[in-house]
């Protein structure tokens, strides 16, 4: 784990959330979520690298973290697909992709 890894992980997480909070386009919002997701991968890799671990050098980058990261990628894609499907339907119903146009709907 290096200082750069620290900064990059924290920055990516925050900037992705900033994108979600201030977005004017639902597709942009879902993609910003993926940017935040990237920060979790950076953290996992940073934690798993050779330099970060105690004891004698191991044969491979930590396989537990590798397995976690690789299944996480596939799961993230299908979740993004589900969210984008919702965005498609919203667009069909309202003709707009602006998240702020979705406020104040009648109950």
């Amino acid at each position: 784990m290096t200082a750069l890894g620290t900064i990059v992980a924290a920055w990516l997480f925050a900037i992705g959330l900033y994108g979600v909070v201030t977005s004017r386009n639902l597709v942009h919002l879902v993609v910003s979520l993926s940017v935040s997701q990237a920060s979790t991968y950076v953290l996992l890799l940073a934690v798993g690298t050779r330099a970060a671990r105690p004891g004698p050098p191991a044969r491979a980058v930590d396989p537990v973290l590798q397995a976690l990261a690789s299944t996480d990628v596939v799961v993230a894609v299908v979740i993004a697909a589900l969210l984008l499907a919702l965005v498609v339907q919203v667009h069909k119903r309202t003709g707009s992709l602006d998240p702020d146009a979705l406020r104040r709907l009648p109950e």
């Binding site: 959330l17 979600v20 909070v21 201030t22 977005s23 919002l29 998240p99 702020d100 979705l102 406020r103 104040r104 709907l105």
Partner: peptide, 9 residues
Amino acid sequence: DGSIGDAVA
């Protein structure tokens, strides 16, 4: 009022 941005903020 249902804003996603508010929820995340």
